[in-house]
């Protein structure tokens, strides 16, 4: 148990170091941007004179030296304050906090679904190696892996929402329907189907390919041969010995790819009007909302680190011997 605690402590220290670096990096990055946020705000008010723009700059500290702004920002982040969005006139943390559940719901569901289905399909293909079902799965995986997710999303919504009318094409819930309790959960679930499937499909393909390859490799190893020689049943060999060992590299890759899953949510949330931080990120970039953008960077990086820890836990579940790996 001590090993696990140490592992987590080490992870946390490393995560903190990475986060601080990201904060500084991002701060410098967005300040290299050509836009002046005070000007944007003034523009949106329909008129702009010098006094108004200067007022806005002073109000949001944009007239301070860059180093001072950075110091202020890092200091505040350490205290859990992600700053204030001048564009939306609200604390950044409040804005992110509202959007975060939708994104977590979408990406976590897609992550688990893609992992489960991917491993299942990959294992099935490996067992059936060389038969038509193996080929079908391989071709499907190849296609899914080559398809841009935003396009998959568009085509699925064209088919299932526009043409067939089975599922809602966009949004998080039926607007103004006022559902509560179970009805609300079902409503959200219906809205989730298309975005989750779209996001999961791409990663499922990756995991299926990896699982298949990994299982085929493990099969040829000595301990499997030994198990076979001991006369264990084929199903038992495939699940207990082959799959269990073959799945480890899949989980490692899944942990690394989690970050891309979060990035992919920008596209999916744009296509399906999903009210999460992916959409927020894109809106913030277009509106030059520096503070929100910095906040999203931090939060998505934290999400990636959390996904990594999650995969570590999965790793531990499947193979209790491995605790201090990597």
């Amino acid at each position: 148990m001590l090993g696990l605690a140490q592992l987590f402590a080490g992870r946390l220290v490393k995560a903190a170091a990475i986060l601080i670096t990201i904060v500084v990096l991002n701060f410098l990055l967005v300040h290299a941007a050509p836009g002046d946020p005070a000007m944007v705000m003034a523009g949106e008010a329909g008129a702009a004179d010098e006094q108004f723009v200067a007022q806005l700059r002073a109000q949001f500290g944009l007239d301070r030296p860059l180093t001072e702004q950075l110091a202020t920002y890092v200091g505040k982040v350490v205290q859990g304050d992600l700053g204030y969005s001048y564009r939306q006139q609200r604390p950044v943390w409040d804005i992110l906090w509202e959007r975060l559940p939708a994104t977590l719901l979408l990406t976590l569901t897609a992550f688990l679904l893609s992992l489960a289905l991917g491993v299942l399909l990959g294992a099935f293909a490996a067992v059936q190696v060389g038969r038509w079902s193996d080929s079908a799965i391989t071709v499907l995986a190849l296609l899914a892996y080559a398809t841009p997710i935003y396009w998959t999303g568009l085509m699925l919504s064209l088919l299932f929402a526009v043409e067939l009318g089975w599922l809602p094409a966009f949004g998080y819930e039926t607007i103004g329907a006022g559902y509560t309790g179970l009805d609300h959960a079902l409503d959200v679930a219906r809205h989730m189907v298309l975005p989750v499937v779209t996001l999961a499909l791409f990663y499922m393909a990756a995991y299926a390919r990896l699982t298949r390859a990994s299982m085929l490799e493990v099969r040829g190893q000595d301990f499997v041969k030994t198990a076979r020689a001991k006369g264990l049943g084929p199903l038992r060999i495939e699940t207990r010995h082959v799959l269990r060992n073959a799945i480890l590299p899949v989980i490692t890759v899944a942990g690394i790819q989690a970050g891309q899953l979060v990035g992919g949510s920008i596209l999916i949330e744009t296509v399906f009007a999903w009210p999460g931080i992916g959409r927020l990120a894109f809106e913030a970039v277009l509106q030059r909302d520096y503070q929100v953008l910095l906040g999203i960077f931090l939060v998505t990086s934290v999400m990636v680190i959390l996904f990594n820890i999650l995969t570590d836990l999965l790793y531990g579940l499947i193979d209790p011997r491995i605790q201090v790996a990597r």
Binding site: A33, G35, M39, V40, A42, L286, R288
Partner: peptide, 12 residues
């Protein structure tokens, strides 16, 4: 191409 901030800054 430009974003809203860059656009108003460059025009102004």
């Amino acid at each position: 191409s430009t974003d809203a901030g860059g656009w108003s800054q460059r025009v102004a």
